[in-house]
């Protein structure tokens, strides 16, 4: 059975990252133990077309009550790939985000910014046969959080990714290019590697920007790929 690469800890954040205060008591402290990759690790839920409907990928329409949501309309596209560059089709992506003012509809969000009656900030989409996805939404606002004095999260969209097996599961966040709050953010800075950080920052995509309508952003996502056998390795 094809084995997959493990979590690459050079690019993923550690469990304990003291500047993000809540990590101190929540991440495991003991060393992770090895687990052989057997059938239960190399399988995962299979999602069909009935998992999502067309409105799920348009957050500017899927929660309308009495009008359009307020804010800057954007289109986010991207490709889900594994580390070998194989596209992953029919994979479920779930997204959630704050509204244009930086407020979530979640009842625990106490940020003193207005809710938008026409926006829940929640969507879902399946990747197509080429591993590509596309959704339309509103650019999220920055919001304060209690981690430290004057702490603000950079604008971000949360992504939940199911690949094809248990090992490819990923929950991450997409950021926007040029946001000055990124370099001040302990969550973003929990990433150990500069290249890894870059991979979480979307690119402005003028080819996706639609005249008179919305700006485009591109955000590709890479999950664990199959281990390459020595035969396939072409080292110089």
């Amino acid at each position: 059975m094809t084995q997959f690469n493990p979590i690459n800890w050079k690019t993923h954040p550690p469990y304990i990252h003291p500047p993000y205060r809540s990590t101190a008591k929540r991440g495991p402290l003991k060393k992770l133990l090895p687990l052989p990759q057997k059938l239960s690790e190399l399988t995962g839920p299979v999602f069909g077309a009935d998992t999502v409907n067309e409105l799920d990928s348009d957050l500017t329409r899927n929660a309308r009550v009495n009008g359009e949501p307020i804010g800057e309309r954007i289109i986010v596209v991207g490709k889900l790939l594994d580390e070998s560059g194989n596209a992953i089709p029919n994979a479920l992506l779930e997204v959630w985000q704050a509204n244009a003012c930086g407020r979530y509809i979640h009842k625990v969000d106490q940020h003193d910014a207005p809710l938008d009656p026409n926006f829940t900030g929640c969507g879902r989409v399946l990747t197509d046969a080429n591993g590509e996805y596309r959704f339309t939404t509103i650019k999220p606002g920055a919001y304060p959080w209690g981690n430290h004095e004057n702490a603000w999260r950079p604008a971000h969209i949360h992504f939940s990714v199911f690949g094809t097996n248990f090992l490819q599961r990923l929950v991450t966040q997409m950021y926007f290019p040029g946001d000055p709050l990124m370099s001040l953010d302990p969550i973003f800075n929990g990433l150990p590697d500069e290249n890894g950080k870059k991979r979480l920052v979307s690119d402005y995509a003028h080819d996706i920007t639609t005249p008179e309508w919305a700006l485009g952003y591109r955000f590709n996502i890479v999950v664990n790929g199959p281990k390459e056998t020595p035969f396939e390795t072409k080292e110089a």
């Binding site: 690459n8 993923h12 580390e83 070998s84 990923l170 290249n195 950080k197 890479v222 664990n224």
Partner: peptide
Amino acid sequence: SQFEQSPSQ
């Protein structure tokens, strides 16, 4: 690998 894993958040 051609591509590196997108980090978790």
